[in-house]
Simulated assay, not measured.
Amino acid sequence: MNKRLLKVAVTTALTVAFAVPAFANPFSDVPAKHWAYDAVGKLAQDGVITGYEDGTFKGDKTISRYEMASMVASAMQKNLDNDQKEIVDQLSKEFAAELTEMGIKVEALDKKVDKMVKISGDARVRYGASDNFDNTDFRARVSFDGKINDDLKFNARMTSGNLSYDADFSDQSSVKLDTANVTFDALGLTNTIGRQDLMLGNGFLHDSAMTGFAAEAGNLKAYIGNLKDSTKIYGAEYGLKLGAATVTADYANYDDGTNNETDVYGANVGIKLTNSVTALGEFYNFDNGSIDADAAAYGLKFNKLGLTALYRDVEAGANSPFSNIHNDIQNLKNESNGYKGLEVRYDRAIAKNTTLNLKYQDFEDQDGFELDGGARTQAAINVKF
Rank of each mutant, 00 (worst) to 15 (best):
Q45C: 01
A69C: 00
S320I: 08
K58G: 13
A214S: 14
G55V: 02
Y339C: 00
G373E: 03
N324R: 12
G161V: 03
W35F: 14
Y66C: 01
N327E: 11
L305G: 03
N331W: 08
L200T: 06
K115P: 00
D347L: 15
R4T: 12
K272D: 07
V113F: 06
R312N: 10
T278W: 04
E94F: 01
E315C: 10
G201S: 09
N353T: 05
N331Y: 06
T62E: 13
T100R: 08
V88L: 02
Y339F: 13
K93F: 05
T211S: 10
G201P: 09
G368S: 04
V113M: 10
N2Q: 15
I233M: 11
F133D: 00
T258P: 01
L6K: 15
K384P: 02
A19D: 15
D255Q: 07
V106A: 14
A24F: 09
N219C: 02
N353E: 09
F18V: 02
F95H: 00
A349E: 12
N79L: 06
D347T: 14
E343D: 03
D313Q: 08
D46K: 12
R345F: 07
A380L: 05
K304A: 10
T248Y: 12
S173H: 11
S160E: 07
M102H: 02
